[in-house]
Structure formats: C-alpha cells, structure tokens
Amino acid sequence: MRLRPAIGVAAVVLTLSCLAACGGGDDGDGGEDHVTLHVFAAASLTETFTTLGQQFEKEHPNTKVEFNFGPSSGLAEQITGGAPADVFASASPSNMDTLVQSGDASDPKDFAKNSGEVAVPPDNPAGIVAVGDLVGQGVKVAVCQPQVPCGKLADAIFLDKLGLDLKPATEEVDVKSVLTKVELGEVDAGVVYVTDVKAAGGKVKGIEIPDHQNASTAYPIATLGNSTHEKQAQEFVDLVLSDDGSKVLTEAGFARP
C-alpha cells in the first residue's frame, strides 16, 4: 500500500518525459531511419505542400514530413521561440528576413509568387463584380490582419494601388480563416490569394483583380539553423525548387518567382 503513491508519481513523470522526448524526434535508434521532418509553411501553401510532402515521403520512405501551416508571422515567431522546425516557407520575404537576421535561417530562395483575388460566396449576395465594389455601403468584407502577409497584400491593393479606404468587418488571423468566412457566407467578400480561390473549388467564386490594381508577394523557403535533419531538410527544399515542385505550384495557380 505504501508504494502506490510512488507508483503514481513515477507514472506521471514517465508519461510527461515521454511526451516531451518522443514528440521531438526519433533520432535515438540508428542514424537515418525514421526521420520526422518538421516543415513550417504559410497557410496559403496548405494544399501544394501537402502534395509535395506526400511526394517526398514516397521518394524517401524512411522520412515522415509533418507540417505546421499558419500565418507566416506567427510561424516565424514560433521558430525564434525555439519550436522544432527544419524548413520554413514564408508567404512574404519580410518574415523570412526576420529569421535570417536572428540567425535562425540562411540563404533563402524564392520559389513562387502569388497575387490577390477577391473571393465571394457562390451566390454572390452583394453582387460584387470588381474589386472596387468591396468598399461599397453595407458590404461585409473579411481580410487578413495587417500583421500577416495576406493582410499586407490587401493593404497594398487598396491603399497603394486603388487609394480606397477599405473598412473590413473582420481581420482574420490567416488567409484560410478569411476563406472559411466566405465559404460559410458570413461575409460578402474576402481578399485572398489567387491560389486560395483555385483550391476552394466551387465553394467560392473568384473575382479577378486586374494586374495594374493587383499586388503580389514572393514566397521564400530556407532550411533552419537548429534543424537536426539538415540533409533531409535540404532535400525537401530542393524538391520545392525543382521542376516537379514548380509544376505542383503552378498547377495550383502560383506564378514562377
């Protein structure tokens, strides 16, 4: 009977230490087999990188690719905060520059370009035909918050190119949240990337923004300094930069850098 509490304590300690250690990686047993590669990528890369990840796993049977998709600014913050990441793909050069300056990443390369598009629900309740309609009376618009790349893109389009004062109904944390609000019909329109409209299929309708009114953002990718799988990380970056990679990306609507 006296031993019971001690067993309880031991169980808790064991469980916690396993959760901490086993989650981090499987480096323990024998060199290269069963490596887990952690790729932090912008939310707008969700579909393409998932495809590329499966392709990578097929070519490297012992490597598992795990993704963390989210707003580039938040991912960069997590990486400087010590999150275990091997590769970072950002939706804007500025978040990558932050990591280069802090020494977490080096030698980033642009692998794609993306530009803005207006997404509306399939029935287009507000009758949007052009990007300028988004500033109309009573039109509910979702954009990304200004801290993340797709929010900067919306600012570049409305403030710099059109000179219009857009009053959004909500500023979402990343581009996929904007798209969700459009899909659910909770807003009349959202400012997203060309690739997001394409990825959403028929769930939203795209209203193209003419080139002279549009803005674009470059996507850089780099391996990270504290990666424990440098070789695999570099191989993944190489795949993204390869012709195969660029094919997947252009099919999804990305432009070449």
Binding site: G74, Q147, E171
Partner: peptide, 24 residues
Amino acid sequence: ITFAGNLQGVTRTMPLEVYLAMET
C-alpha cells in the same frame, strides 16, 4: 475569435489582442 471575428474596437478583446501581439 471564431464567432465574432477580430476587428479593433468592435470585436478584438484583450485575449485576442494578446494572441495577435504575440505574433509580431
């Protein structure tokens, strides 16, 4: 953040502000 969204002065409460600030 799921139901009310996120806009300064309208729906962005302190916890949302903390979360957003953490990113930048």
